[in-house]
Design a protein around this nucleic acid. Structure first.
Length: 463
RNA sequence: UCCUCGGUAGCUCAAUCGGCAGAGCGGGUGGCUGUUAACCACUAGGUUGCAGGUUCGAGUCCUGCCCGAGGAGCCA
């Protein structure tokens, strides 16, 4: 009887009411909700009468038969109704519904091959909760600028659901991977007193009467927590005030950064490979249905295996030049170089031993080649670009002091960081993996902006 | 920040040489017993991004500005 109570609560408002909703009476309803079923669980309810609560995704009518497709956030369910009387009350209620109106729908679940999803609801009752007017996103095509302007509504569509479910799975996989290997989660601050690397542009904000900056990496703090806990990771949003305007850049993005005491470049490279493989495996086994919706060809993901091709910067340079790249020793990789790599290899590759001059101040130099840095980048296949950047950090106090001087960084701000080299310093390494680039690679979608619910882009902060 | 392209109905776009501003979708009305972006008929819907200029006449040509997209550099 409890579910009947819920239905009658809505029904009492009138079947096509658009007035204010009486939430107080809804809150006072406290009986068990026995028949409320989510669409993703519908298969277990065949033959039973259930209530689905959701929004009108689509509707069609054909004389004496009507179809109502409802989405409830977990899936889509088609409901049907028949009547010889076109003015039947149920039909009148149906006719008043518009796209994205919120509804309670009650009916009997039936297996039905003709219905999308294989199950169907024989509708007995429809109770509108709120009728929406002029929903802007129609079932036809829209331009990306228009959809971005309506991102808060775009999230309701099927493809966006698939991408964001993959994102949730990638995040879960990352946490499970590190937690399962005994890494401690160390949340690093978002408000920081100074640059982590000094090179990239930072968002400045007021910290009472001081200046503060939004973090562009948790790494330096992670080096401190790694010396405290051995192996750690931080996972959170990162901010870069660079005027980047490409499909691979967000102003605000999520990054996971492990840091391991006593680990070398080799150790951290293997860790990165294992992480990437773990994520791919999780997405392939648990989110295959979403990859199907996105029409993702999974073969490029399935063929990724250990070890990834390992290349030193100096090894790959002549091959790039042979293919027409204008890159010369000392230059960092650009988009054309990443694209060429995707021609050479159909799997991700690890590039290491970059010229020290183009890398961050904290990078450990190679023992036999001080002009090279012990850094490693993992470049995803299919031109999805750099997903991992990391390496071995300087552990020697004198060298680090020298680098801070060379880069003209304010020493006072780095006193605590130098302390880590004074009290039990050890070789240590870590990397950062970009969540959105990884998700766009998994999903096979070209633009990173769809891999986060509300992307922050150059010149776009709405909604 | 630089280069390139674009802005016409709610949306996606068309409009020939500078000569009556249009179509599909969506909305509304009616029809149809299995629709899958349903279909059929009718119907309403316009400050052509903004400001100025050339011209008998500008969506179209010129100048400036605003907004957006693609790419580069930088990086995850």
């Amino acid at each position: 009887m409890a579910s009947a109570t819920a239905l009658s609560w809505y029904a009492a408002r009138g079947s096509a009411s658009t007035g204010p909703i009486d939430f107080a009476s809804f809150i006072s309803y406290n009986g068990p909700i026995m028949d409320w079923v989510y669409v993703e669980d519908i298969a277990g309810h065949a033959g039973r009468e259930v209530e689905v609560r959701g929004w009108v995704y689509h509707k069609r009518s054909s004389g004496k038969v009507r179809f109502l497709v409802v989405r409830d956030g977990t899936g889509l369910l088609q409901g049907t109704m028949y009547s010889a009387d076109k003015d039947a009350p149920l039909f009148q209620t149906f006719d008043a519904l518009t796209q994205e109106s919120s509804v309670l729908v009650r009916g009997v679940v039936r297996e039905e091959k003709r219905a999308p999803g294989g199950f169907e609801l024989e509708i007995r009752e429809i109770v509108p909760v709120q009728i929406s007017r002029d929903y802007p996103i129609t079932p036809k095509e829209h331009s990306t600028p228009f959809l971005m302007e309506h991102r808060h509504l775009w999230l309701r569509s099927e493809k966006q659901h698939a991408v964001l479910r993959v994102r949730a799975e990638v995040v879960k996989a990352i946490r499970d991977f590190f937690d399962g290997r005994g890494f401690r989660l160390m949340d690093t601050p978002i408000l920081t007193p100074s640059a982590c690397e000094g090179t990239t542009t930072l968002f400045e904000t007021a910290y009472f009467d001081q200046k503060a900056y939004l973090s562009q990496s948790g790494q330096l703090y992670n080096e401190a927590t790694a010396m405290a806990f051995g192996k750690v990771y931080c996972f959170g949003p990162t901010f870069r005030a660079e005027r980047s305007k490409t499909r691979k850049h967000l102003i605000e993005f999520w990054m996971v950064e492990p840091e391991v005491a006593f680990a070398t470049l080799e150790d951290i490279t293997v860790l990165g490979e294992d992480l990437v493989l773990f994520i791919i495996d999780r997405v392939l086994t648990r989110r295959r249905a979403d990859l199907d919706i996105l029409e993702r060809d999974v073969k490029p993901l399935e063929r990724v295996a250990k070890p990834f091709p390992r290349l030193r910067y100096e090894e790959i340079l002549p091959r790039l030049q042979e293919k027409g790249s204008t890159i010369k020793f000392g230059d960092d990789f650009g988009a054309p170089e990443e694209a060429l790599l995707s021609e050479f290899y159909d799997v991700p590759v690890c590039i290491s031993h970059f010229p020290a001059a183009v890398k961050a101040f904290y990078m450990q130099p190679a023992p036999d080649r001080p002009d090279l840095a012990l850094g490693v980048d993992v470049i995803a296949s299919e031109s999805y670009g750099e997903i991992i950047g990391g390496g071995q950090r300087i552990h020697d106090l004198d060298l680090l002091e020298e680098r801070i001087r060379e880069h003209r960084l304010p020493r006072e701000a780095y006193e605590w960081y130098l302390d880590l080299r004074k009290y039990g310093s050890v070789p240590h390494s870590g990397f950062g993996l970009g969540v959105e680039r990884t998700v766009s690679w998994m999903c096979g979608i070209k633009h990173i902006r769809e891999t986060i619910p509300f992307p922050r882009l150059l010149y776009r902060i709405y909604p």
